[in-house]
Amino acid sequence: MRIFGIALAALTLSGCAGWGFDSNVSPEGIKEYYKGDGVTLYTKAELEGVNYVTLGSVEGEACQVEAQEAPPKVADARAHIRRRAADMGANGLILDSCIRFDDMPGCIEQVLCTGQAITVNKP
């Protein structure tokens, strides 16, 4: 009886051996998504007395293209602006505002965040 149980378990497990897992997430896509993690959000008050350089203005957006999609999230627009700041070589971001718009060209609803990409000289 014991040998039958072992044989049955081996047969069951071997049936799954040919199965694979396909994903649309590539290692490059993961790096792209998380590269904004190195960009810290700052308020102007937090930067008083801190040595930093402004690299330029930056924007990030989240857009609802189709009616059946979920409305855009501010968190997605903030993640996008942080990735754009990272592309500029920034390690910090002064977030000016995030505004929600309706009926924009190409978007049913859009969240647009604006700010300044900065490099903070850390001691």
Score class of each variant (00 low, 15 high):
residue 60 G to Q: 03
residue 27 P to N: 08
residue 23 S to A: 12
residue 53 V to D: 15
residue 33 Y to W: 12
residue 82 R to I: 02
residue 75 A to G: 11
residue 57 S to Y: 06
residue 47 L to C: 12
residue 68 Q to R: 11
residue 40 T to R: 15
residue 88 M to G: 00
residue 52 Y to F: 15
residue 75 A to F: 02
residue 61 E to A: 10
residue 19 W to V: 10
residue 18 G to F: 07
residue 34 Y to N: 14
residue 34 Y to L: 14
residue 86 A to W: 00
residue 43 T to D: 10
residue 27 P to I: 10
residue 47 L to E: 04
residue 26 S to H: 09
residue 59 E to L: 06
residue 39 V to A: 04
residue 65 V to R: 13
residue 21 F to A: 13
residue 38 G to S: 15
residue 30 I to H: 10
residue 51 N to A: 15
residue 67 A to R: 12
residue 60 G to F: 01
residue 90 A to S: 10
residue 93 L to S: 00
residue 78 R to L: 08
residue 88 M to P: 00
residue 60 G to R: 02
residue 14 S to N: 08
residue 32 E to S: 13
residue 53 V to N: 11
residue 36 G to Y: 01
residue 64 Q to K: 12
residue 44 K to S: 10
residue 14 S to K: 02
residue 32 E to P: 01
residue 76 D to Q: 09
residue 20 G to P: 02
residue 22 D to K: 07
residue 33 Y to P: 00
residue 31 K to A: 15
residue 70 A to M: 04
residue 86 A to L: 07
residue 20 G to S: 13
residue 61 E to D: 10
residue 90 A to R: 03
residue 53 V to L: 14
residue 37 D to K: 14
residue 89 G to H: 07
residue 72 P to D: 02
residue 87 D to V: 07
residue 55 L to T: 04
residue 27 P to R: 07
residue 88 M to E: 02
residue 42 Y to G: 04
residue 31 K to P: 03
residue 52 Y to P: 05
residue 55 L to N: 03
residue 34 Y to D: 12
residue 90 A to L: 05
residue 44 K to P: 08
residue 87 D to H: 02
residue 50 V to R: 15
residue 22 D to A: 14
residue 42 Y to E: 04
residue 14 S to H: 06
residue 42 Y to N: 01
residue 63 C to W: 05
residue 51 N to F: 09
residue 79 A to N: 13
residue 25 V to M: 12
residue 28 E to V: 14
residue 50 V to F: 13
residue 26 S to D: 08
residue 73 K to F: 09
residue 53 V to P: 01
residue 28 E to P: 02
residue 73 K to V: 07
residue 86 A to V: 05
residue 43 T to S: 15
residue 63 C to A: 08
residue 53 V to M: 12
residue 61 E to V: 11
residue 58 V to M: 04
residue 26 S to K: 09
residue 13 L to N: 00
residue 54 T to W: 06
residue 84 R to L: 05
residue 19 W to L: 12
residue 84 R to S: 05
residue 64 Q to A: 05
residue 47 L to F: 12
residue 51 N to K: 15
residue 72 P to R: 05
residue 36 G to W: 01
residue 55 L to M: 07
residue 15 G to P: 03
residue 74 V to D: 14
residue 49 G to D: 08
residue 77 A to G: 07
residue 95 L to D: 05
residue 13 L to C: 04
residue 76 D to V: 09
residue 78 R to M: 12
residue 39 V to W: 00
residue 46 E to P: 04
residue 21 F to R: 12
residue 84 R to Y: 03
residue 90 A to M: 07
residue 15 G to C: 07
residue 37 D to Y: 10
residue 23 S to F: 02
residue 42 Y to A: 06
residue 69 E to D: 14
residue 65 V to L: 07
residue 33 Y to R: 11
residue 39 V to C: 07
residue 31 K to Q: 15
